[in-house]
Design a protein around this nucleic acid. Structure first.
Ligand SMILES: [Zn+2]
Ligand SMILES: [Zn+2]
Ligand SMILES: [Zn+2]
Ligand SMILES: [Zn+2]
Lengths: 129, 129
DNA sequence: TACATAGTGTTATATTATAACATTTAAATT
DNA sequence: AATTTAAATGTTATAATATAACACTATGTA
């Protein structure tokens, strides 16, 4: 198991506590009191945390969320649902889906090592509005 | 069928001719001789072209590619394969995949109207290197 | 014509991300 | 423990991506 460095731990903690995906500069603003002052310090920690699978980047939102699957296959296979009204993001943990996608072969014969899937729609709360 | 405006047509043409996804500022550079001088002119055309499904955004690359499916369901269901070595991007047109994903229901009861899937790996050429 | 809608042109600015370099800390090897 | 190596940090500057605000123009349609 990976031991996080000081900056990595600070930045992981704030993302993990957040109920919603956090953007890099919002993270920066929130950790300045802890001595992290520059964007690069944040981005370096984010890169590492993504690499080891502790967080994921929501590409369509340029935001970061803590892994909810505890044993995500080291960030290699990610799926999210995103509410386009309230922007709630949830990591999908569905073995049928992950099996289907992990075994997917395309015509071009490409060998996939990783995928990212983002579903968009309305969450339960927002449908009824 | 949608008629493109002047700027939309110029920008679609250059993306459509490109063998690889194009970034906004690269598009801007390439259309300046045609009188399009400001980022916003490019981004507005891109927004519209994405909306009507003529192009798609590759979110992980901040780049834009012409739709290869001719009848993409108006940009609501997109899947791409991306070579992490040569950066070749291909739109996947696979009815089994699109059926599976269009019918996917998650536990949270979210209603999906759209998805974007990006597979990463090595293309045939790059595997053998 | 009158009205509404979509598109354009322009300047300025916001947001997201990386380059380069010096230094420090932690871990591995001898 | 001392040496070596890899990983992480601190800092300044800058690159790359994207939007706000406002005035104006073209297009469709009642
Ligand atoms: Zn995860
Ligand atoms: Zn919602
Ligand atoms: Zn398409
Ligand atoms: Zn390749």
């Amino acid at each position: 198991m990976h031991t996080l460095s000081k900056n990595q731990q600070i930045i992981f903690d704030i993302i993990d506590k957040s109920p919603e995906p956090m953007k890099a500069y919002s993270i920066l603003f929130n950790v300045q009191k802890k001595g992290i002052k520059a964007p690069l310090q944040v981005y370096r920690a984010l890169d590492k945390l993504v690499e080891i699978g502790k967080i994921h980047k929501i590409e369509s939102r340029n935001a970061f969320i803590a892994c909810q699957n505890s044993s995500c296959q080291v960030s290699k296979a990610t799926a999210f649902s995103i509410c386009e009204s309230c922007e709630k993001v949830t990591e999908i943990n569905n073995s049928s889906l992950s099996k289907y996608l992990s075994n997917f072969k395309d015509k071009a014969g490409m060998k996939y090592s990783k995928y990212n899937l983002e579903f968009f729609g309305l969450c339960k709360k927002c449908i009824t509005k």
